[in-house]
Design a binder for these strands. Structure first.
Lengths: 220, 220
DNA sequence: TTTAAATTTAAACAAACGTTTAATTTAAAC
DNA sequence: GTTTAAATTAAACGTTTGTTTAAATTTAAA
């Protein structure tokens, strides 16, 4: 029943893309994340996506607009995911865990696009529209802040915390590991990409949950 | 007396660069960090550094080797800084604060180069030698781990911690804020670059110290 | 002052870049 | 079967890329 609302509200906004366009978007996402926006040529994208070079201009207008399309395709509907967690009737501690877990899962799912954003957002020469991304960041931080404030009012959470920086610790810890994958694979003794992937979604997520809980909870 | 050792031990390794070379390195660092390695042309570097384009090949061999030279120029001697903190006779809690503060200050000082590394390290197409960087990472994490283990043996630190991930939380939190500077400037009401800079070295550093202490210390 | 090496320069190089063109094919509507 | 618009193609466009060349200039030692 909920997914119904999601489909009807968001798909029209996001899914004006046909199969071939999505194919291009996915290849672009992979290559932009792996070898950078400037490092990736439209010819490389076209070859990997098995389409003619001109199709990228034909469908998206330009390489920069292709990136903007990718952002819209990936960055939307996070607010909705957040709210499905927030409306649940759970104790603050469990809800906090669920919140962090959702954030890590979400970022992990869209890690490639977020890696691109992390790098391109502060690139002043670029003409990319990051409004959708900034809005998402604002939304998520707003909901976190409200939840933390609520917990503080009810005496469950500590008050001497930099609430506005909690999100940075969650996402930052994730990306520091993800951006240094070869290093952490060696350090943690993970010898396959699957083992690394699994570690990110279990131990790393748990470490981040533990970190945020340590900051917010008084000793049991 | 200590700076003597430093000068005689390290300068020869690092400082085979003349003034003009250092000029090029600093401009390259700025541009690589601001608009990316691929986004920066050697002509742009040459113009900004006020030298002829050919001088970059003449001095460094290639654009990639220029980046390698920059890494060597910036990434060395961290181990030494770490050890000056570790040999101090301080209580574990204070030493932990000093350690985190050193890490943030160090990263902040070399933030541009580290931003470049964060992005280029996992770029598989690149032929850059990151050994110096990886060694530094290993060194710092090794020293942190040993210190934490010592604190745990003495009952000062908790034992249920992902010790190997502490560094990721410290550096990750820093970079998540730094890489989203415009966003956090707005969010935190910092209206100048100086105010942002100041926040990074005070409130943000304090938040990270608090985070690590929350993870490691039992309630007072 | 002469000489040789190091530095600096403008010009040229081929290769790769993002994008556009104009011709051709495909697919659906009539 | 014809018409019409959308999709697809190969080729070409003018720039920009990193790098090299070979000549000119500066520097410093003999």
């Amino acid at each position: 029943m909920f997914s119904f609302v999601l489909v009807f509200n968001l798909r029209p906004l996001l899914m004006d893309f046909n199969e071939k366009q999505i194919q291009i978007l996915k290849v672009a996402e992979k290559l932009f994340a792996e070898i950078g926006f400037d490092g990736t040529s439209v010819r490389h994208i076209a070859k990997e996506a098995d389409v003619n070079v001109a199709m990228i201009s034909y469908y998206f207008g330009s390489k920069e607009k292709l990136l903007e399309a990718l952002l819209l395709y990936r960055v939307a509907d996070f607010k909705m995911e957040l709210e499905t967690v927030m409306v649940q009737n759970l104790p603050h501690v469990e809800k906090l865990d669920a919140l962090v877990s959702l954030m890590v899962n979400r970022i992990h799912r869209n890690r490639r696009t977020h890696k691109i954003i992390n790098y391109e957002y502060t690139n002043t020469c670029r003409q990319i529209d990051f409004d959708a991304y900034v809005e998402q960041k604002k939304d998520s931080l707003g909901i976190i802040e409200a939840f933390v404030k609520d917990g503080q009012n009810k005496g469950v959470f500590k008050t001497d915390v930099h609430t506005k920086l909690l999100g940075a610790t969650v996402i930052g810890t994730y990306f520091q590991v993800y951006n240094n994958k070869p290093f952490y694979k060696k350090l943690l003794g993970l010898d396959s990409d699957e083992a690394f992937e699994n570690y990110m979604l279990t131990s790393l997520t748990q470490h981040i949950q533990q970190t945020i809980k340590s900051l917010l909870l008084n000793e049991k």
